[in-house]
Simulated assay, not measured.
Amino acid sequence: MNRPVVKILLATLLLAPLWLTPQAHAASADRKLPLSIEADRKHTDYKGGEATYEGRVIITQGQLTLTADKATIHLRDGQFDRAILEGRPVIYQDRDDAGQPIRGEARRMDYQALDEIITLSGQARIERAGDTLASERIVYHLKNEVVDAGAGGSDRVRMTLQPRSAGEGKKP
């Protein structure tokens, strides 16, 4: 890995605690609520545990809302495990346990629900508490609050942090 990419990744990791609070993961209680899916078309492979939805796809679970042109849903042991979404853009909206809105968008999103990992790729962007992070690829580990951004090569990570007063940085 070249030096500028390493510096960018280190800077992102060092700034992440300012951007993410200890409660930045999706509202955990929502993951026990029913999953609702709307679309224009659906194709299901029951034996394979996979369903593909197309046309104005809207997925909701508690505060979580995903919108896309196409979504492939994977089940593990009869439970929602993963969604691969495609669109122009795919939009992720949720609230953390502190009630702060989180919004992400990209051309492709891999949402691993059970592992609590979101991978945004293709003009990826995450907004939270007025702060923004943009890159070609962003991997957001909700459970342990780790964010990795940058796809290498000519990809640049762009982050904007809003000014906060002394005690405000802990509760954006």
Rank of each mutant, 00 (worst) to 15 (best):
Arg103Ser: 14
Asp110Thr: 14
Glu50Gln: 14
Ile102Tyr: 00
Tyr111Ser: 01
Thr119Leu: 09
Gln112Cys: 07
Ala134Ile: 09
Ala26Pro: 01
Val5Cys: 09
Ala98Thr: 13
Lys170Asn: 12
Ile73Pro: 02
Pro22Ala: 15
Ile118Met: 07
Glu105Ile: 02
Glu116Cys: 08
Asp40Ser: 13
Asp110Glu: 13
Ala16Gly: 14
Ala113Met: 12
Arg3His: 14
Arg164Phe: 02
Pro101Asn: 03
Gly122Met: 01
Leu20Phe: 04
Leu14Ala: 12
Met109Ile: 02
Met109Gly: 02
Gly62Trp: 01
Gly48His: 08
Val146Pro: 02
Thr65Cys: 09
Ala71Thr: 04
Ala16Gln: 04
Thr67Asp: 05
Arg158Val: 12
Ala129Leu: 02
Asp131Lys: 06
Lys70Val: 03
Pro163His: 05
Ala98Lys: 11
Leu10Trp: 11
Asp40Val: 07
Asp81Phe: 06
Arg128Gly: 03
Gly104Glu: 02
Gly122Leu: 00
Glu145Trp: 04
Asp81Asn: 14
Gln123Met: 06
Gln93Pro: 03
Leu66Asp: 01
Thr44Asp: 06
Val146Asp: 05
Val146Ile: 14
Leu142Arg: 02
Gly48Asp: 09
Glu105Leu: 00
Lys143Val: 10
Lys7Ala: 15
Ile8Lys: 14
Ile84Trp: 04
Asn2Gly: 15
Gly99Cys: 13
Asp77Met: 09
Arg76Met: 05
Ala129Arg: 02
Phe80Ile: 06
Thr72Ala: 08
His43Tyr: 11
Pro89Lys: 01
Asp115Ile: 10
Ser154Ile: 05
Phe80Asp: 06
Glu136His: 06
Thr21His: 08
Asp115Trp: 05
Arg56Pro: 12
Ala24Pro: 01
Arg82Gln: 10
Pro101Gln: 04
Glu50Tyr: 06
Pro34Cys: 15
Lys42Met: 12
Gly49Phe: 03
Ala71Arg: 00
Ala151Val: 03
Gly152Arg: 12
Ala113Val: 10
Pro17Arg: 14
Asn144Thr: 12
Gly49Pro: 05
Ile73Val: 15
Lys32Asp: 15
Ile58Ser: 13
Gly169Val: 05
Leu75Met: 15
Lys70Ser: 08
Ile84Asp: 08
Leu9Pro: 02
Ile118Glu: 00
Ser135Ile: 00
Ile102Met: 08
Leu18Arg: 09
Gln63Tyr: 03
Pro34Glu: 11
Pro4Val: 10
Met159Ala: 09
Leu20Gln: 08
Gln79Pro: 01
Gly62Cys: 09
Thr21Tyr: 07
Ala68Trp: 01
Ala129Asp: 04
Ala106Gln: 00
Leu33Ser: 13
Gln100Met: 08
Thr119Tyr: 02
Asp77Ser: 09
Leu15Glu: 00
Arg107Trp: 07
